[in-house]
Lab assay of single mutants.
Amino acid sequence: DEVTIHLGDKTIRVDGLDKELLEILKELARRGADEEELRKEIERWER
């Protein structure tokens, strides 16, 4: 499953996201997290 996250004018595509992680990323994005913060969160989950 590829998920596309839209952040204002930026788009991040991620393969096979965990549903819980997806919810966390959506919440972070709502709070104004930037792409770098979201990537760090994704990397934390992948470990």
Rank of each mutant, 00 (worst) to 15 (best):
D1C: 15
D1A: 10
D1R: 07
D1M: 12
E2Q: 12
E2N: 11
V3W: 07
T4Y: 08
T4G: 08
T4S: 11
T4A: 10
I5N: 04
I5W: 00
I5T: 05
H6D: 14
H6A: 12
H6K: 14
H6R: 14
H6N: 14
L7H: 06
L7D: 05
L7W: 06
G8Y: 01
G8Q: 11
G8W: 01
D9K: 06
D9Q: 07
D9E: 14
D9H: 06
K10H: 14
K10W: 03
K10R: 09
K10D: 08
T11S: 14
T11F: 02
T11W: 01
I12E: 02
I12M: 06
I12W: 00
I12K: 03
I12R: 01
R13D: 10
R13K: 14
R13T: 13
R13G: 05
R13N: 14
R13L: 12
R13E: 09
V14F: 15
V14C: 09
D15I: 15
D15A: 15
D15W: 00
D15Y: 00
G16D: 08
G16W: 10
G16K: 10
G16L: 13
G16F: 11
L17Q: 06
L17P: 03
L17A: 09
D18K: 10
D18A: 15
K19E: 13
K19L: 13
K19F: 08
K19P: 15
E20H: 13
E20Q: 14
E20P: 05
E20T: 09
E20K: 14
L21H: 02
L21Q: 03
L22S: 04
L22M: 11
L22H: 05
E23H: 09
E23V: 10
E23K: 10
E23S: 08
E23T: 08
I24A: 06
L25Q: 00
L25C: 02
K26I: 15
K26H: 13
K26R: 13
K26G: 05
E27T: 04
E27G: 07
L28W: 01
L28E: 00
L28H: 03
A29E: 08
A29C: 08
A29F: 07
A29G: 06
A29H: 09
A29Q: 13
A29N: 05
R30W: 03
R30K: 15
R31H: 11
R31E: 07
R31F: 07
R31K: 15
R31D: 10
G32R: 01
G32N: 03
G32F: 02
G32T: 01
A33R: 03
A33F: 09
A33N: 02
D34F: 04
D34H: 07
D34T: 15
D34W: 02
E35V: 13
E35W: 13
E35R: 04
E35D: 07
E35I: 13
E35H: 07
E36P: 05
E36A: 13
E36Y: 10
E37V: 13
E37W: 06
E37C: 10
E37K: 04
E37H: 06
L38N: 00
L38K: 01
L38T: 02
L38A: 02
L38R: 01
L38S: 01
L38D: 00
L38Y: 04
R39Q: 07
R39G: 02
R39C: 05
R39S: 03
K40N: 09
K40L: 08
K40F: 05
K40V: 08
K40M: 07
K40G: 06
E41S: 05
E41G: 01
E41L: 08
E41R: 05
E41I: 09
E41Y: 06
I42T: 02
E43M: 03
E43F: 01
E43R: 02
E43C: 02
E43D: 13
R44K: 13
R44D: 13
R44Y: 12
R44F: 10
W45K: 03
W45I: 05
W45Y: 06
W45F: 09
E46L: 11
E46F: 08
E46D: 09
E46C: 06
E46Y: 09
R47N: 15
